[in-house]
């Protein structure tokens, strides 16, 4: 493939532009944490200041809402990972009847527009006169994460060598020990990846949440519902902090991976 400098050059250019497109808004968010906005909207650049970082935690409504988002995400994703992980394990490890029907049941929630899912949950809670609030949000978030987790984990489990379990049993390992030492370590990377991604989905959800939240405010709800009235710069600070945590995690895990690799080679 080395004989096509033009095509390669084009690919590099397009890739560079693509990454620029992905990152320009993220950089914008970070830059606007240093903005001193005139008026209530932190969307036009005025002048440089450190004030927003100094008073990062002053907008208590957004912080409370962010705390709620984290609580919802943790509870919902733990339940979803448990339910979805078990389903994925059953489908990929055992022979069972009704596989196609189960696949359909798992795929449908992903192909249902969020707005329809939100609306249908709203009618369920309305009909049963369930008061909408924290737990209805948890249920809704669990719902869209279950399928996501089940399908992601299923994809990761495909191709794992289950005969390792037999080998352990042949060597006299009791079933629980086999699970702890063989099965669990094999399935854990897939499950943790699915858990992380569903956390991100849950923390970010606005549309379904808006139908089932009652008067409980999550971070996206707080931002969107007040975006017509005010966008304080502290919102940008919170977002930048989360982004920094993500960047550090990515860099750290990559470095750890590279070090492992070099250790294996050396």
């Amino acid at each position: 493939m080395t004989r096509r400098p033009l095509a390669t050059w084009l690919l590099y250019a397009v890739t560079f532009l693509g990454f620029a497109y992905l990152f320009v808004p993220l950089i914008t968010i970070a830059v606007f944490t240093f903005n001193k906005p005139k008026g209530r909207f932190n969307t036009a650049w005025q002048s440089f200041t450190f004030d927003n970082w100094r008073h990062a935690f002053q907008q208590s409504d957004y912080l409370t809402a962010f705390g709620k988002s984290i609580q919802v995400a943790l509870i919902a994703c733990v339940i979803a990972t448990f339910l979805g992980g078990l389903m994925a394990l059953a489908i990929s490890r055992y022979k069972m009847k009704g596989g196609p029907a189960l696949d359909l049941l798992l795929i449908l929630p992903l192909t249902t527009p969020e707005i329809v899912m939100g609306a249908s949950l709203f009618t369920l809670f309305f009909n049963q006169s369930v008061r909408r609030g924290f737990w209805t949000i948890v249920i809704a978030h669990t719902l869209f994460c279950v399928s996501f987790v089940a399908l992601t984990v299923k994809a990761r489990l495909r191709g794992l060598d289950w005969s390792l379990e037999d080998a352990a049993a042949d060597l006299g390992s009791p079933p629980l020990r086999t699970f702890r030492k063989i099965t669990f370590p094999m399935i854990v990377p897939g499950i943790s990846a699915a858990f992380m991604l569903s956390l991100a989905l849950s923390i970010d959800d606005y549309i379904i949440t808006s139908f089932v939240a009652g008067n409980v405010s999550t971070f996206p709800r707080e931002v969107f519902d007040s975006s017509k009235i005010t966008i304080p710069p502290q919102v940008h600070v919170i977002a930048t902090l989360i982004m920094l945590i993500a960047v550090v995690t990515i860099v750290a895990s990559t470095l750890a991976g590279l070090r492992r690799e070099s250790r294996l080679k050396g």
Binding site: Y206, A239, M243, A246, T254
Partner: peptide
């Protein structure tokens, strides 16, 4: 990881 980064910034803030 970088491609996934937008996932870890609020959809609304983007």
């Amino acid at each position: 990881g970088l491609v996934m980064l937008p996932f870890f910034t609020s959809f609304l803030l983007r």
